[in-house]
Amino acid sequence: MFEYLITNYNYMVVVFLMMMGLWAMIAKKNLVKKCIGLVIFQTGIILFYISMGAKNNSTIPIIDPKYGEAAINYANPLTQILMLTAIVVGVATLGVGLMLVQRIYKEYGSINEDRILEKFK
């Protein structure tokens, strides 16, 4: 049981984070909270990718003659590169989202979804 927990703990945390993020994106009414949910959701995916690239008894993926040339001694570089890109995309999306929140506040005077919808009527 403990063994199973250790080998799969990361993936379970991924599921929790994604559920939390999705909940915030759908159910929260406050727009800033929605943005926080969005970032949590993205971090869940990043954690998933990085976890799959981890290796037991390995060092960071910077080649050093001290550790030899065998690939088994180094952590997986590919997942890290993919996630570098994903982090950048995440920040860009976050910036655009927050810009929209500011504009919405300027026009409607509220960042609560219900109250904005009331103003349309």
Binding site: L22, M25, L31, K34, L38, F41, Q42, T93, V96, G97, L100, V101, R103, I104, E107, Y108, I116
Partner: peptide, 13 residues
Amino acid sequence: LVATFNYLIMGSM
């Protein structure tokens, strides 16, 4: 703006 925000949340999802 509001339509875009909804699109942003759905699109990122």
